[in-house]
Amino acid sequence: MLKRNIITKTMAVAAAAFVMVACQKIDRPELGEYIKDANPPGGPLKFYVAFDGTTTDPLRNAVDSMRANFASSNPLTFVPGISGRAIQGAATKDKAVKYASPNDFADASSFTVSYWLKHSPQTDGEPEFHFSLPSKDYWHSSAMFLLVEKAGPNPDNSTPTQMACTFAVQDRWVEFRGPNRLPNALDGNWHHLAFTYDQTTSKLTAYVDGVAVPYTGTGNIVGGAATPMGPAKFWNSSRDNLSSFVIGGWNKHVGGMGDAFKGPQDPWIHSYSGAMDQFRLYNKALTASEVTALFNSKR
């Protein structure tokens, strides 16, 4: 018995020594050039997808992998983008990219939506949705969306040189129509769009290619001049009511609110038919210089 105890103790000491040596060897590895995270935990960038699908950049790959590996929820194809690859929207009424959530962007009080687009006209000229944040808290079942109006001669419609659109936040709508339409965004070339909302002013500002679009009248105050919105709130009764995040379409295009929103579509509800790249959501209103920097760097 004594001999066995001695052998056991000897083996335990040897094992401990091996562990210590092994730990010492891996405690000081040769450090390479690690990617520097420009958006540390708690930073303002809450959602980012480059649409590259196979990117080796670990800071992008998590969201890109969602796009690449869940084809049933994300049926769009890849095309050359403004940086790497982009997604190509579908001319049908039932395809868009669906993500499980917009991450912590749902808690933003000020915000920025930023992305690149290359427009392709709808075959029947109907309106189309660029993105949507589905929510059960609102009558239109979306806490945020962008709807681009159909083409036509009416000042409330879009042309290749003027994009008429509506940006919805909760039940507040900001309409970029008539003299407030966005320039050049639908001419078939790559353009950068950004929408910033500042809770201190209750104003939504649109940027095209890094330049703020002038807005006439009071409609740029979300909710109207008499009732400024203040801090944005994308959910009311429960954060769980935000079911997903849709890029390139609206809730019905992906069944974003469950079975009741699947199936036949309203004839005017179209998914986005063009290409889209570098989609970002921030929980702050970027400054004009920050938006310009995104445009200049093709980010």
Rank of each mutant, 00 (worst) to 15 (best):
L2Q: 14
K3S: 08
A22R: 13
D27E: 12
P29Q: 08
F47M: 02
T56C: 00
D57K: 12
A62I: 05
A68Y: 07
A68S: 13
S73D: 14
V79M: 03
P80L: 00
I82E: 01
R85P: 00
G89A: 05
K95W: 06
D104K: 12
F105T: 10
F105N: 04
S109A: 12
S110F: 09
V113S: 03
K118D: 05
D124H: 07
S132G: 11
L133V: 11
P134F: 14
D137G: 04
L146A: 10
K150T: 03
A151I: 03
G152N: 01
N154K: 08
P155F: 09
D156F: 14
S158C: 02
T159Y: 06
T161Q: 15
Q170M: 10
V174M: 11
V174T: 15
L182Q: 00
A185Y: 01
W190M: 09
H192K: 03
L193V: 01
L193G: 00
Q199K: 15
L204G: 07
Y207M: 11
Y207D: 12
V208C: 07
V211P: 10
T218Y: 14
V222H: 01
M229V: 11
M229L: 14
P231I: 05
K233I: 01
R239E: 10
D240T: 14
D240F: 01
N241W: 01
S243C: 12
H253Q: 06
V254F: 06
D259W: 10
D259R: 13
F261E: 02
F261S: 10
K262N: 13
P264L: 07
Y272Q: 06
A275L: 03
F279H: 07
F279K: 00
F279R: 00
R280W: 07
F295N: 00
K298E: 04
R299S: 15
